[in-house]
C-alpha cells in the first residue's frame, strides 16, 4: 500500500488526465451543500442525524438566547435603577433562601429538559441499523484515501486541488481530484483509521465528525437522503497542511453509483497493480529502526 501510494502520486503529477476526468464529475454536482458567504447557521442537513442535531440545537439555542436576554434585562434594570444617583442608599439584603433555591432548581430543570433529547440523539447516532455497504476512510498527511471493501476493495486517494489549478465552478480548498461517491438513501458504514497522525473526517451537512486514530478503527454510519456534492475539512490538527485536506462526497442515485463502481474498479485497479513492480526496486526502508 505504501509504495502504491507513492506511485499514484507520481502518476498523477505526471499525467493530468485523471484530474480532467474528474472535473467532469464535479461539474455535474448540482445541489452542493457547502458553506455560503455570511452564513450564520448550520449547512442544510442531508442526513437524519444532522436533521436531529439541527432540531436539538434549535431547542438549545432558543433557551440559551432566552437566558442571555434575561440576564441582560436584569443588568439593564440594575444600571438604570440601582446606580448611585437613583438609589443613594444601598439595601442590606444578603440572603433570600427561596430565591437561592429557585436559581438552583430552575437551571437543574432546564438541564433535565435538555438531557432527554440529548440522550435520544446520542444513542440514535450510535446505532447503525443495518448498513448495506462499507466505506473505509484512511487519513494521511495530508490527504484522504478511500476503499470500497464490499465492491471488490478498490481504493484511491483524494487530494485537494491546489489553488493554481482551480477551474471556474470549483471551490477553493474544498474540491478534490477524486471525490468519494456514495449512493443516496443507503446506510453506509464508515470505518476510519489513520496511517500516521490523528486526523478527523468531517462533513457538516452529514453530522459526521470522527477522529481517525492510528492503530485503531472507528466506526460510524451515514445515510444521505439528498443527492448532491458535500464538503468538509479535516478537523483535527494534523501538521503542516492540516488546512489543505478537504473531504468531498458526491451522492448519486443507486443506479449511477453502480455505474460509477464499474468504472472506478477499472480505473483504480490499474493504479493498484503498481506495487508488483515496486518490489523489484530497492525500496529504501522507511521504518524507523531504532
Amino acid at each position: 500500500m505504501q509504495n502504491s501510494r507513492r506511485i499514484i502520486l507520481r502518476y498523477k503529477s505526471g499525467v493530468a488526465f485523471l484530474i480532467t476526468a474528474f472535473a467532469a464529475f464535479m461539474a455535474s454536482g448540482a445541489n452542493a451543500a457547502e458553506p455560503k458567504p455570511w452564513q450564520m447557521n448550520f449547512q442544510p442537513a442531508a442526513t437524519p442525524v444532522m436533521e436531529k442535531i439541527t432540531e436539538f440545537h434549535n431547542l438549545l439555542l432558543t433557551v440559551e438566547v432566552g437566558i442571555v436576554i434575561f440576564v441582560l434585562a436584569l443588568m439593564l434594570i440594575i444600571i438604570f435603577k440601582f446606580n448611585a444617583k437613583s438609589n443613594p442608599e444601598p439595601s442590606k439584603t444578603t440572603h433570600n433562601t427561596p430565591l437561592e433555591v429557585i436559581w438552583t432548581v430552575i437551571p437543574i430543570v432546564i438541564l433535565i429538559i435538555f438531557s432527554v433529547p440529548s440522550m435520544k440523539l446520542l444513542f440514535f447516532m450510535d446505532k447503525a441499523q443495518n448498513p448495506e455497504m462499507t466505506l473505509k476512510i484512511v487519513g494521511h498527511q495530508w490527504y484522504w484515501s478511500y476503499q470500497y471493501p464490499d465492491h471488490g476493495g478498490f481504493e484511491f486517494d483524494s487530494n485537494m486541488i491546489p489553488d493554481e489549478e482551480i477551474k471556474p465552478g470549483q471551490r477553493r480548498l474544498l474540491d478534490v481530484d477524486n471525490q468519494v461517491v456514495l449512493p443516496v438513501n443507503t446506510e453506509v458504514r464508515l470505518l476510519m483509521t489513520s496511517e500516521d497522525v490523528i486526523h478527523n473526517w468531517a462533513i457538516p451537512a452529514f453530522g459526521v465528525k470522527l477522529d481517525t486514530v492510528p492503530g485503531r478503527t472507528n466506526e460510524t454510519w451515514v445515510k444521505v437522503t439528498k443527492p448532491g456534492t458535500y464538503y468538509g475539512q479535516c478537523s483535527e490538527l494534523c501538521g503542516v497542511n492540516h488546512g489543505f485536506m478537504p473531504v468531498a462526497v458526491k451522492v448519486v442515485s443507486k443506479d449511477e453509483f453502480k455505474q460509477w463502481v464499474a468504472k472506478a474498479k477499472k480505473e483504480f485497479a490499474k493504479v493498484k497493480a503498481a506495487p508488483v513492480k515496486v518490489v523489484e526496486m530497492n525500496t529504501p526502508v522507511q521504518a524507523k529502526v531504532r
Binding site: F42, V49, M50, K52, I53, F56, H57, L60, L61, E64, V65, I67, V68, V71, L72, M75, L111, F114, S118, M119, L121, L122, M125, N200, A202, P204, G207, V208, K209, S235, E236
Partner: peptide, 25 residues
C-alpha cells in the same frame, strides 16, 4: 458577567455529545 454568560450558554451546547459533533474543532 455578561460576556461570561454569553460564553457559558454555548458551553451547554458543547457539553452535549450529540450536538457537539457539529461544533467540535
Amino acid at each position: 458577567i455578561f460576556l461570561f454568560v454569553v460564553g457559558g450558554v454555548t458551553g451547554v451546547t458543547l457539553a452535549n455529545a450529540g450536538s457537539d459533533i457539529a461544533f467540535h474543532d
